[in-house]
Amino acid sequence: MQEALNKIIEDYIENEGNIISVLQQIQEEFNYLPKDAIHYVSDRLSIPSSYFYGVATFYSQFYLKPRGKHIITTCCGTACHVKGSDKLYNQVREEFNLTGDEDTSGDGLCTAEKVACVGACSIAPVVIVDKKILGKVQKKELTKVIKEIKEEQDA
C-alpha cells in the first residue's frame, strides 16, 4: 500500500495537487478510500485527516467502504424518473437482497447505486452496468443482466 501512496504524495508535491486530486488517486488505486491510506497520507503531508474526511464526505464520488465487484448504477435524473427509474432501482436492490442502508451485497458481488443524471436522457430510463450504458431499460432486460452476473459468479 505504501508504495502506491508514496507515488500519489510525490505527484501532489510536484504538480501542486490538492485534497480532491489526492483522494481521487487513492480511490483509483484501491477502489475506495481505506482508512489506513487516508491516515498515512495525512501524516506524510501534515494535513489533518479531518480535512480529507471533510472533502471525502462532501462529494458523492468518494466511498469510505469497499464496493462490490460489479456496480449497477440506476440513473434517477428527471427523464429517467418519469420513465420509472425508481422501479428499476428497487428491482436491483431486491435481486441482491439489499435492505436498509446497505448498498453492497453481503458477498461483495454487487453494489447498487443511484446517480443524479448521466446525461443520456434521450434514451431514458438508463442503467449503467460496470460502466456500460444501457438505454431504454425494461425490467426483463435488467433481470437478464443480473442473472448473468450471478451465474458468472457461480461458475
Binding site: 490538492n18 485534497i19 480532491i20 483522494l23 462532501f58 462529494y59 458523492s60 464520488q61 468518494f62
Partner: peptide, 20 residues
C-alpha cells in the same frame, strides 16, 4: 467529484482549489 452545488461559481472555485 460529484456535487451539484459546484455548478455555482464560487463553489466551483472552491472545488478546483481542492476544498469542499
Amino acid at each position: 467529484a460529484g456535487a451539484f452545488v459546484c455548478g455555482e461559481e464560487t463553489a466551483l472555485i472552491a472545488s478546483i482549489e481542492g476544498e469542499r
